[in-house]
Design a binder for these strands. Sequence first.
RNA 1: GGAGGGAUGGCCGAGUGGCCUAUGGCGCCUGUCUUGAAAACAGGUGUGGGGCAACCCACCGGGGGUUCGAAUCCCUCUCCCUCCGCCA
Length: 424
Amino acid sequence: MLDINLIREDPEVVRTSMRVRQMDPAPVDAVLALDSERRVLLAQSEKLKAERNAVSKEIGRAKDSAGREARIEAMRSVGDQIAVLDDQLREVDGKLHEAISIIPNIPDPSVPVGPDEHGNVVIRTVGEPRTFDFTPRPHWELGVDLGIINFDQGVKITGSRFYVLSGAGARLQRAIIAFFLDLHIRQGYREQYTPFMVKSETLFGSGQLPKFRDNLYKDHEEDLWMVPTAEVPLTGLHMDEILDEARLPLRYTAYTPCFRREKMSAGRDVRGIKRGHQFDKVEMYIYAKPEESQAEHARMLADAEETCRALGLTYRVVQQCTGDLSFASHITYDLEVWAPGVGEWLEVSSVSNVGDFQARRANIKYRPADGGRTRYLHTLNGSGLGMPRTLIAVMENYQTKEGSIQVPEVLSPWMGGIDRISIP
RNA sequence: GGAGGGAUGGCCGAGUGGCCUAUGGCGCCUGUCUUGAAAACAGGUGUGGGGCAACCCACCGGGGGUUCGAAUCCCUCUCCCUCCGCCA
């Protein structure tokens, strides 16, 4: 959520930011109109309340019943006026909140302007795409032949875009998750195990609601939603808190499954395990002081890159342009790994600094050590790699001519002696 | 699922309709005293909003209501505790 003062004082900055995001800036004008309407009503209501408070105090002190009755009668009508004004105020407040809630974060000035993902900029490529003396096969062939991915069973028990990992495939994914978590712990993040379901308020805090309701799964009778990313519960951990400056930065890591309806991507990436309604992810999350968030962003990006290097994957760092930048983000770098079987760079991580955008929505502040006013802090989030795509990259990069998969050395502690997955 | 009890400032805890619209204590900050510290004493110490300002408004778990006036009375929801039942 943006600061209402910013919208009030410099609406053109906000309009411009929406335009470069390929959005209609009309909500800005709605916010301005509602905001001035609100302030007029608020001033009227508060003036009457001040009067009522003062007179009510006199009534409490008054001894003569005649004076009391006259004042009580006068205040009755003042009370009625206040009720009318407060009803209007409530309505305007609700509309204002709704309008300001759908305005996206302002991109950092360094974010390249572009229409969509085609405007993203490759910052650097690390490693060379692996060469093969045979034609590398896609994971959906390898996985089925090796008996470690079963698409039919996923569809049978749940539906399209679901699959089952079996035997060494399931174990390989678990090994990658455990490896990532342990790596992030060494990098200085504290592991969290959170609920996988959250209430609406929590989703509002991280920015998924109200705008992206259609992409979420919801319990049909309770106020409970399945998390689309660990970023949601991790933002919620300190909702409505004022943290002491000495506690910052707070660095968390969490494994969660992620649930997404993928309504906007119907028909895309239908083959394989690249885009499912359920996938696993290990996330990094940082609460930082504003002046430190840029350095923390660089650190988090380096920590995410380390996961790719440790797995021996060729990757590139891509900066998202304004047209691709997610709703809450101020600046985002993606990590894309090369998958030779499907022949494409797969987005396995997005590392974002959202500034105070989520902190405002979730009401998370900190108290400076010098005792100054409380301030909103900054939050950052980044995947320590999303699972199915990392799994795809590992399978396709480590495949052999015989159709088996060599297990990366770093995963051996979790693989129980399996160093190669072969056709049974 | 049933019955009962709770939720008040950083923490503990008083407050059942006006009498400073939150007593008191702990903690914290400042000052006095002291070579310094402790102790003692005095003062201060929540969040948000509106206003150039003086100041005003709101907030006692959330929401709604009664009243001239609500932390206090009523309704409702959430969460916590105790007991009973059921159960992975």
